[in-house]
Design a protein around this nucleic acid. Structure first.
Lengths: 337, 337
DNA sequence: CTGAAAGCGCTTACAG
DNA sequence: CTGAAAGCGCTTACAG
């Protein structure tokens, strides 16, 4: 039904390969001939069949995006920004996005990931989420281009793009110190993606040592992924000997609970207690007072990941020349500080 | 580099077509032979090359998902639920999702949409968003399977899956009446997707007439997509002659502004004023008090859309046998009512 | 600058 | 139940 290259060639009165040359710019074609060809293409609404083209060029022009469906729906909002960034980068380069969004429980994720590679339905892969660990081996062995996105770098092993969580936490402390705070506490979520939490903890600690006159472990509470994580930690901190004037929470949700509990205990935010969250999700915008938060540049991360992957695919960057891109976080100021 | 069907045939000591038959179950193969073949496949990590297969079968096993990037980031959360639903339906059927997420401004969307069809990179299309109108013609003329998702049905023209916004609004009124309310107001957002707002308005009106003892237009305010839409409308309603005891807002964001303004004016929620939002987004969960909201079954909509599309692709449903699937909304009860 | 031909990796009648 | 062969729609050396 759909027009083929043969139809175009017949319509334009040229050989099939001439059409191919004109379409791909892979050889010079006389202007007059070109015009006839493009007129025919226009008339027939011809587009090269992707399967046929892919079969001979060994390229699909697809980028596979494999995402682990996290338990926490809220964090998924972030995914959309990433997808936008990816879209920006790929759209201009005629790449399409092959999306796989699976629960981490089954090993469907790993299976699918490998399938994309084995079936050759994409030219490269972008991997998001925490627990996809096993299948890298086959990809690496066969030098199949892939980029880890939003995960701590595995130095020397995989290409990766991530936010600088350490710097983000550092900035948070710096910002609070600029506001005159000295006793700054941290509630870190005992996250599954332990690494991001660790980076944030390290950034906090370093900033406290360098700028805050020393690190005091009594100002650190370990939260959890529990529904109401944040309440008890806040109470503990506010009733402690070293009552903090500011609390940095490892996640926006926790930050909103800090605010609630503080108000409940009679403290005013931000007057008596400043609060900063992490990730700049909807929570921080919608809370009353709205909550200052550390924004991760998800969109730019998506953009950079796609760019990197395309360079890997095109051979502009060698597979073994492992790239580790780390992008800075920003303090988004709101009412809570 | 990757193993081909020839390699498998050689390894198993059979003809190429026998491998194909075994893999696809398209002809009977002796058990012993099968075993040798699958052993070889396992050993070589063989998967049929999608391009080659697609070229001959005229099937890509891809479903194209074309989404218009709305201005309102919040509403995009909904998209993820849809994607999950799609994933559920397609994952089990060996379909992949080809995602295109573009701004509505350019006509990139329409171009991309047609490209997917013309390049034959997907077997069918799911379309989300408001303003994609032009390109349906070519798809329909060529009987290319596609489903409109979350958009008002175009009866007799396109297959579609949508939420029953009318019923949702009706339920909201019914629920409030059950709580003893009589003067129930509506603030409708003057949305671009005018149709959903209209449906909600109609549902509200019908319910008021049937259950609420009559429709009173003084209880209806037309909001807007402005940043702070909701404040003035609330003030107007609460200061009016027919002061309502409950307000239904056409969007959760507006509902949250209704709550704020009401509290500011000294009314207690829900004691003095009950508030219901629409869409059950993060806003309604995070507001204090949390806001009762009408949930659209986005995940199920995605599921149904994918199922429908696959049936269309497989020819189980004829292209001309236009399907219009409408799924009911649910009241999610929270603190505001 | 353009044409005839081979081949990419599959599937599918067609024989046997 | 299995094999040899044609063909899907492209691209790409190879001639001319």
């Amino acid at each position: 039904m759909a027009a083929t290259i043969k139809d175009v060639a017949r319509e334009a009165g040229v050989a099939v390969c001439t059409v191919s040359f004109a379409v791909n710019g892979s050889a010079h074609v006389a202007e007059a001939t070109k015009k006839r060809i493009f007129d025919a293409i226009e008339k027939l609404n011809y587009r090269p069949n992707q399967s046929a083209r892919g079969l001979v060029t060994k390229k699909t022009n697809n980028i596979g995006l494999v995402v682990e469906d996290t338990v926490d729906g809220l964090e998924n909002t972030i995914l959309l920004d990433v997808v936008k960034g990816l879209g920006e980068a790929t759209g201009d380069n005629n790449y399409d996005l092959l999306l796989s969004f699976q629960k981490p429980s089954t090993n469907k994720l790993a299976d699918h990931l490998l399938d994309v590679y084995r079936k050759q339905s994409a030219d490269g892969l972008i991997l998001m989420g925490a627990a996809i660990n096993q299948p890298y081996g086959e990809l690496i062995k066969n030098r199949f281009p892939f980029v880890l996105l939003g995960r701590p770098a595995m130095p020397g092993v995989c290409h990766s793009v991530n936010a600088d969580n350490e710097q983000g936490a550092y900035e948070a402390v710096k910002y609070l110190i600029g506001k005159g705070h000295r006793r700054i506490a941290l509630i870190t979520p005992c996250s599954l993606e332990v690494d991001a939490s660790l980076d944030r903890y390290n950034g906090y600690r370093q900033a406290m040592e360098e700028l805050g006159g020393g690190f005091d472990e009594r100002l650190v509470e370990i939260g959890s992924f529990e529904e109401d994580s944040g309440y008890t930690e806040t109470e503990k901190l506010l009733n402690g000997v070293e009552r903090p004037t500011a609390i940095i929470a490892g996640r926006d949700v926790i930050a909103s609970r800090v605010v609630e509990k503080a108000q409940e205990l009679g403290y005013k935010v931000p007057e008596d207690l400043a609060v900063i969250g992490f990730d700049n999700t909807a929570v921080s915008q919608l809370a009353r007072p709205s909550i200052t938060s550390i924004e991760l540049p998800m969109r730019q991360m998506g953009l950079e990941a796609a760019k990197l992957l395309m360079q890997l695919i095109d051979g502009e960057i060698r597979f073994d020349d492992i790239q580790t891109i780390v992008l800075p976080c920003t303090v988004i100021e709101r009412e809570s500080t």
